[in-house]
């Protein structure tokens, strides 16, 4: 089943993105994965994982670049039927220090890139009978955690995007879900203050931070095996 699938993965060289890439390729999926700055990491992943892992250099802040990439992919004989967005920018910065440029950059990568991709991909998925979208959202969109405002709003915006798209395209065979991620051992969580991580470990049900592999397994399940879940936030966050 997975052998015939082609995924577009945003943020394939990131902490979670790499784990997703490895798992999907191991399950026989062809994956076009994007990167911006980590060209060496992208080359190494492609070399390690073989022809099923196809890197694409792209600046997700630029809608025209995203549309150009999608145009190329949709012209292929086996275009993507799966879109996974693991590209997330975020650092804990206090409200007064968030510049307009930083605000725009975070929203463009965390929200607009997925919007632009879905705008092109979902009609194409629907035209061929369906597909799956899995978007990542960090726990910062949830109330119990302290969070940088500009980042939190990008995370709740992506939830709104996913839920709206699930409604608009559900009748045409496209499922859209969100995986809500708690603090992990690395990646975006590396920037979190130690006391915050200690609070999380004390207050969450599972009592520890997570790993990228744990998130990747949930994403792969929703992407490849789910048939009836859509428009949902799937909480892979340790039980906060």
């Amino acid at each position: 089943m997975s052998d015939s699938r082609h995924a577009l993965l945003f943020g394939g060289t990131g902490h979670v993105g790499q784990a997703v890439l490895r798992l999907l390729v191991a399950r026989g999926v062809r994956v076009t994965f994007t990167y911006r700055r980590k060209a060496a990491a992208a080359r190494e992943l492609a070399a390690e994982l073989g022809p099923r892992a196809m890197p694409a250099a792209i600046d997700l802040r630029a809608p025209a670049a995203i549309r150009a990439l999608l145009g190329d992919l949709l012209a292929e004989p086996e275009p993507p039927d799966l879109f996974i967005d693991c590209a997330t920018l975020g650092r804990p910065i206090a409200l007064p220090e968030v510049s307009d440029d930083l605000y725009d950059e975070v929203q463009s990568v965390n929200v607009r890139a997925a919007f632009v991709a879905c705008q092109t991909l979902l009609p194409a998925f629907a035209a061929r009978g369906g597909g799956d979208v899995v978007l990542l959202t960090y726990l910062d969109g949830a109330r119990p955690t302290p969070m940088p405002a500009h980042f939190a709003l990008s995370q709740t915006a992506i939830i709104g995007l996913g839920q709206a798209l699930a409604k608009e395209y559900g009748g045409r065979g496209v499922r859209v879900n969100l995986v809500q991620v708690g603090p992990l051992q690395d990646g975006v969580a590396r920037e979190l203050p130690i006391p915050l991580l200690a609070d999380f470990e004390r207050l969450s049900a599972i009592g520890r931070v997570g790993t990228a592999d744990e998130v990747a397994r949930a994403i792969a399940f929703l992407a490849l095996e789910n048939s009836y879940l859509t428009g949902q936030v799937f909480p892979v966050q340790g039980g906060l």
């Binding site: 409604k167 997570g210 892979v236």
Partner: peptide, 20 residues
Amino acid sequence: WLVSPENTFMSGANINLDGG
């Protein structure tokens, strides 16, 4: 899948498997 060893970082959750 929810009760399998693949699902290790989810607890206390309620999943609405309802078709959206």
